[in-house]
């Protein structure tokens, strides 16, 4: 699975990086994003959902978060 590490990247750069990374992924493929606690984990999932991607889950791993999503249609 694609893993995109957005730790240490602040809003809204993390969201823009996530968008750019998703351009290289096929619709229907799954991707994991690593996100910091706080504003990033609050904002990035919602923005990605609003862009039409399907959020699959969120889990906390050693002080950061792993967001799993399926890429939506272009």
């Amino acid at each position: 699975m694609n893993v995109i590490d957005l730790r240490g990247v602040t809003c809204p750069t993390n969201f823009v990086k996530a968008k750019l990374a998703l351009e290289l992924v096929e619709t229907g493929e799954q991707v994991e994003f690593l996100l910091d606690d706080g504003e990033p984990v609050k904002n990035v999932p919602r923005s990605l959902k609003a862009e039409g991607h399907k959020l699959l889950g969120l889990k906390e791993v050693e002080g950061h978060y792993v967001l799993t999503l399926e890429k939506g249609a272009e």
């Binding site: 984990v41 609050k42 999932p45 919602r46 959020l55 699959l56 889950g57 969120l58 978060y65």
Partner: peptide
């Protein structure tokens, strides 16, 4: 609900 926990994490 699929129990993903995103809402609880999002709630300020």
């Amino acid at each position: 609900c699929i129990g993903c926990g995103l809402c609880a994490k999002t709630c300020s």
